[in-house]
Simulated assay, not measured.
Amino acid sequence: MPLTPTDDLVRKQLAVAADRLRQSMNQLEFDEPVSYIYNPLDYAWDLHRQYIELASGEAEVLFLGMNPGPWGMAQTGVPFGEIATVRDWLGISGDVCEVDPEHPKRPIEGLDCERSEVSGRRLWGLMRERYPTPQDFFRKHFVVNYCPLVFMEESGRNRTPDKLSVDERQALQVHCDQHLQEVIRVLPWKHLVGVGAFAETCLKRVAASSGSEIAIGRILHPSPASPAANKDWSGTATSQLVKMGIWQ
């Protein structure tokens, strides 16, 4: 079925914004304890572009995550991109480029990676349960991450953006806020939903700076590091979305 002009325009604008973010991230520098930085918008750009092609001009709900996990978007270029979901449900295929330098404990294997990210499995698993096809989900929803970079310490430990130094966090925020503003402008969203408290804070800050009055809410982050998320995360998230009037 041919794409509608609205879909074409939305996808083009999202791709341009993502490419601008990709390039701006490569200009930033980070000091210890950050020892390795992965930018999946670089080495997994082809897969990310395929993901953007799923976006719909009718979307009303924007979900915002924080940054890639080592076994999710870091491998696939897709927000919360758990391997099986990206490959088997979203239908995204292809290879990723090499990363240099690459942490020996965090190899990038793309869709061949045999690890599974719990956060992505939970989030996309809920969407797969509720929507028969990806098209059904993307008709009204889209998912992006606030920051596209993966930060790792020498040990291989993941370091989230909120744990960066103040100066580094502020420099990162300039570009990530700009990207988020661009994404918000792409469509007349009815709901902005932070996946976790950090993302909700980002949405409120960016929406306030742009004068946007879109409804902003939050769902529990699906990370296994959260005790609450390990107790029926899908049920909790569903209840929160129903309460916000997004789902029935």
Rank of each mutant, 00 (worst) to 15 (best):
T85M: 07
V166D: 10
F30M: 07
D8Y: 08
L64P: 03
L54D: 04
R218Q: 14
Y146S: 08
I37H: 00
E109I: 07
K105H: 10
R22L: 05
D8T: 12
R121N: 02
E53W: 14
H179C: 05
A44V: 08
Q50H: 10
E153D: 06
S239C: 02
L123C: 07
L149H: 12
D31Y: 00
T4D: 10
E182D: 15
E182Q: 15
S155I: 07
P5H: 06
M25D: 05
E182Y: 01
V10P: 04
R87H: 10
I108Q: 14
V174L: 13
S56W: 03
R11S: 12
Q240C: 04
F151T: 03
E114Y: 04
S155D: 15
G69A: 13
E129V: 00
W89P: 04
L172W: 04
G110Q: 12
I83A: 11
R20D: 07
V10C: 10
P104E: 05
T160L: 07
G57A: 07
C113H: 13
K105T: 11
V34T: 05
P2M: 03
K190C: 03
L111C: 10
S212G: 05
E213T: 14
S212M: 08
I246P: 01
S35D: 08
A171C: 00
T133R: 14
G211Y: 09
